[in-house]
Design a protein around this nucleic acid. Structure first.
Lengths: 241, 241
DNA sequence: CGCCGACTTGATGCCACTCAAAAATAGTGG
DNA sequence: CCACTATTTTTGAGTGGCATCAAGTCGGCG
């Protein structure tokens, strides 16, 4: 575990959402239950029994819903330090699919059934906040898709990623390494891949941002934030007291 | 409290999302902290300090975000038995506005600061599930707005309301009393009021459903569910074991 | 070198928005 | 109970943003 980029302690130090400090006797705390996934791996399937989640140590994942007509909506993206399948941890079954975008290195955590009804204080304290924050992120994207046009929406999405990567040191003023394809971005934003492509061209033309060959360049953060009407308040990290 | 339509016990009996069974010493449990609001009242404002929420005893409310351009997105609607401002309860400040649609009768609940770090078992058990469920509801609407057209989206929305009202006895096979205006529905679905009106006309013409003078008529539930691709799995009520 | 996934561009069409205005309904005070 | 008003609902005409369909082109990798 010494090579882990995100030890429980480091996560707390970063002020990032974290399960650090959870007493091991109530959660099967990781280190031993380390899991690896390849790009495209289906980590969790909708309807699967719940009770387990994954703290990402490295790599990106996404949660998605697939509709009856076959189209797909990505509800959230998880990066280093995030907990994937958080709802699945507390609900009897998973409501969404969880898929690896990149190679993923994660700690699997699960509820210890024997003590499920008497979780430890810290656990009860941190988990609700993390769930509330996730809820806020999804609600904000809901507002984006419902009330922003494609350009604003795309700008907002990248800014959110940039802010979320900040505490892990994966994003700088220059930008960040972004493994998402235009197909994935389209599924996250409720657009078509073709239109995402045009929007990215426009952002480039406007000199605001550019996403090419796996790298997102933040060219003019203020203008981009102005265009998107971005306010980072909803992203304030959850700290475990 | 004897006239309350939703006593803690009744809520549990209905199998509905509920804080029933919470030991009063950890939450300032209501009965005494009853609150009333008039239609249109702003109950909670974005940015307000958190720590409090409202269990609806009667009436409807909605949570919303207002964007920089002035447009508004309703993230969720709350009905009898639901907890409004649930995220606000556990986060330091409210992220959304909470507004009364109808006259509202609610119990205000708040965290007892003195025991915040050591919540009771039942509390820690129920709250995360309720948060996870709310998250699921929002994510499902995200999928609706992102990937369903206006007709499917509207159909899905009414079916969700119908299902959520079911355990409280407020909806029947015939339909339910619905106080939402076409403006509100538009704000919930990311549409314009004019288009909502046209969609409702279409649903009426198709003989699937009708919403007039405050009453929603469910004319053909199966066809409506087929059109919307509706699956009620994400609405399974949270039971407090 | 050949293949396959990701990206790019163009032409065309439609769904939902915008703007405008009237009709119906609900709410209010005299 | 009835005028008066505000809100909500309804309809129309015109437009545009994004989808759809259809080809390419680029780049990584076996």
């Amino acid at each position: 575990v010494s090579t882990s980029k995100v030890s429980p302690i480091a996560m707390t130090a970063a002020g990032h959402a974290s399960l650090a400090g959870l007493p091991g006797k109530h959660l099967k705390w990781p280190g031993k239950t380390r899991r690896r996934f390849k790009p495209g791996d289906q980590i969790v399937r909708q309807g699967e029994p719940g009770g387990r989640a994954f703290v990402l140590d490295h790599g990106w994942t996404y949660s998605s819903v697939t509709l009856h007509n076959g189209s797909r909506q990505i509800t959230d993206v998880q990066v280093q330090g995030d907990v994937a399948n958080l709802q699945g941890l507390v609900l009897p079954s998973a409501l969404f699919d969880l898929t690896a975008i990149t190679a993923v290195d994660a700690f699997e955590i699960s509820l210890d059934e024997s003590s499920e009804d008497t979780p430890a204080p810290d656990y009860a304290n941190a988990l609700p906040r993390m769930l509330a924050k996730e809820s806020a992120v999804i609600a904000t994207r809901l507002a984006s898709i419902g009330r922003r046009n494609a350009l604003e929406r795309t700008a907002h999405f990248y800014l959110e990623l940039w802010f979320r990567l900040r505490p892990t040191g994966q994003s700088s003023d220059a930008g960040f390494s972004c493994p998402m394809t235009q197909y994935l971005i389209a599924d996250a934003l409720g657009l078509t891949p073709e239109h995402v492509n045009r929007v990215l061209r426009d952002l480039r033309t406007l000199g605001l941002a550019s996403h090419q060959r796996g790298w997102f360049s933040l060219l003019d953060k203020d203008k981009l934030a102005g265009l998107a009407g971005f306010d980072s308040a909803y992203l304030e990290p959850v700290t475990v007291a």
